[in-house]
Nucleic acid binder design. Sequence first.
DNA 1: CAGTGGTCTAGACCACTGC
DNA 2: CAGTGGTCTAGACCACTGA
Lengths: 239, 239
Amino acid sequence: MSDHRLPIYQRLHDEIAANIASQVWRPGQPIPPESEIASTHSIAIGTVRKAIDALVAEGLVERRQGRGTFVRRPRFEDSLSRFFRYALPDGQTVPASRLLERELVATAPRHVTDALCLGSGETAIRINRLRVANGTPFLREQIWLPHTKFAPLLTAPEREIGDLLYPAYERLCGQLVARAEEVITIGTADEDDARVLSVERGAAVVVIDRLALDYSGTPLEWRRSRGIASEFRYKVEIY
Amino acid sequence: MSDHRLPIYQRLHDEIAANIASQVWRPGQPIPPESEIASTHSIAIGTVRKAIDALVAEGLVERRQGRGTFVRRPRFEDSLSRFFRYALPDGQTVPASRLLERELVATAPRHVTDALCLGSGETAIRINRLRVANGTPFLREQIWLPHTKFAPLLTAPEREIGDLLYPAYERLCGQLVARAEEVITIGTADEDDARVLSVERGAAVVVIDRLALDYSGTPLEWRRSRGIASEFRYKVEIY
DNA sequence: CAGTGGTCTAGACCACTGC
DNA sequence: CAGTGGTCTAGACCACTGA
């Protein structure tokens, strides 16, 4: 397992992280108390705290004084729409989603199979989806999933999926998205963009490519979102 | 000073941060050893370490085993051009800068005086600047500074300023940029953009508004940068 | 070599939560 | 009330750095 030339707190950190990654300890549930971990591992409680400190900093667990330490439930479904002004008026308007298409695809495009590490011949699910705020579509999403892990999503009735996909992944397929990488670029509207988003053909659109991964770093989902550039707004803090 | 209902490590953290903010301890210099801080404050070394741990996490100081703990020199001058593909070909090409204009302005626009917290009647320096990579201009920058703090920048010969502004701020004006906030939006090229950046009028441009602050949170610089949208590329990690 | 930060221990007491 | 995490102590020994 973990190289035992590493410090104790590192090894403990990795051990706990592995338990979360493998869903032995599930989101929302408490991990064992610090005192218990210390005694079962025969280490000092200060060492346990250092391991947990790191997990807190990484956002894997959450401390609640007097109650315990709990596995965190990742909550970043709206990180995409957070880029857009539409979604932000005090967060009051919850952006809705409209599923347009769900298809089984025998041979996904090269960039998708690469991103998802699909073997040749492995089938994929493609979902086309529209994000809507205040009745106005502002984001087109194309989502690719490995069929093997997400088969239930093809057949589930639309209302069981709901507005947010990641909770649906967990509920219907047992797949947990832990983190994601996004690349933002700017392109121009094609015919479909123009029609669906109500902009002129050739107008600027923001293109956001996202790769979502589970706790162990295995890619779960690749999606490309296209949104109205004039509504795009992103804030960064630099240190 | 610091509320003494706060934990000791918090108060110590604030005290050290204040020493850095006021430049009592300057970038690149070591802070006192942990053992010394512990004895002069009559607290345990573990408590000192906890305070310093937080400062490390915030990026204010840097530990070097066997040597000491040092005030960090902020290094994010190139965070802007990092958004653009031009600047990235293996980081080999150092993007150059060309100063176009330096002017004293009696009444800066409202959004500038607001951002920089300038009193009415306070003068400001406006700098127009061009970022160039491989001989091609890719970013127009307009920079606003409070005259009181940055007067030397108006008269300094251009070669003393160099390609990077923040080191020049420190060298010539004693002002240290500690962090910045940026808002990225997308607009269209006006006549000047079109001419200088060699794009069509009306083409998409990325607009990056940045407010740079010193350690104590006082605004030092406001700048608006306009770049070619098709060259824009930004990567985010979400947890 | 002396001096620094890095790891670890084995306690203590406090503050908070839920029963 | 018992049980949890939060703060703090006073040591120990190790690993690394530079003179």
